[in-house]
Computed example of a mutant assay.
Amino acid sequence: MTTGDLVNIHPTELKFPFELKKQSSCSMQLTNKTDKVVAFKVKTTNPRKYCVRPNTGVVLPGDSCNVTVTMQAQKEAPLDMQCKDKFLVQSVVVSDGTTSKDVLAEMFHKEKGRVIEDFKLRVVYIPANPPSPVPEGSEEGNSPRISVNETGSLIDDVSRTLEETNEKSCEAWSMIYKLTEEKTSAIQQSQKLREELEMLRKESSLKQSGGHSLVLMLLVGLLGCVIGYILNRT
């Protein structure tokens, strides 16, 4: 906390969680230590990079005011995550009844008989996703110890996984055996159908051969009758 005769400012550094292409915000609190109305103004060395709300205002006696500072999304990370930007908070006693709308830049001009307090705050970047802390009791380079309960739970999980794997394997073999039997049955039925079809073809051939012989015999007999009739007439 930065302490002056007029206001206290907390924190003393503006810490922004830094992440590329994302806005980041932090806040500071100004507390009026006096029994008079105090006006304040917030400045920065890089106004295009930061947005301060409110950047001016008044704090009533014994009261506090929160100021939010938003850093615009950055396309590149600075070297070693170091930032040279700074903020300046100025405060001055004003007359009773002064409101935030009445605060003017001229109020912070240093003149004879006017006391203006200046507080400088630097900007600090912190990783948006800091690494997980090392568990207590573990040394660097060594894995953390596993308790007996955790070991038993791990064994139960492995056993359960193996049982599920065995059940799935049995189901798979049963399905393969069933499909093999169905395939064998289909092959046998196909072979039987082929044999029956071959027998039908042979029977059809025999019937056709017998029919031709009978017709031939009838023709020969008829021809013999005709020849005999002719010979008898002659």
Rank of each mutant, 00 (worst) to 15 (best):
L223D: 01
N32W: 03
F119Q: 07
R201C: 09
A77V: 10
Q82P: 00
E13I: 10
G224C: 15
P131Q: 11
S143D: 09
L197N: 13
F87A: 10
P144M: 00
I126S: 11
L20M: 12
L14S: 12
V103H: 03
K43T: 09
G210T: 11
M71N: 07
G228Y: 09
E117P: 12
P133S: 08
T151D: 03
N166D: 12
F18M: 09
L179H: 07
N32A: 02
P61Q: 09
T234P: 04
G62C: 08
F119H: 08
L121T: 10
G137H: 08
Q189P: 03
Q189R: 09
V220T: 06
F87Q: 02
F40H: 08
M107K: 07
T2I: 11
E181N: 01
R201F: 08
A172N: 04
K192V: 11
S159V: 10
L216H: 04
V92K: 00
V37Y: 07
T31V: 11
R122K: 01
G4Q: 10
F108C: 05
I227H: 05
I176K: 01
T31I: 05
V7D: 10
Q191A: 15
I146S: 00
L60K: 11
Q188C: 07
A172C: 04
E111I: 02
K86H: 14
I155Y: 02
R145V: 05
G210Y: 07
L121C: 01
L20A: 11
K207E: 00
Q82V: 12
E171L: 03
N142S: 03
E195R: 05
L222G: 05
L197Q: 13
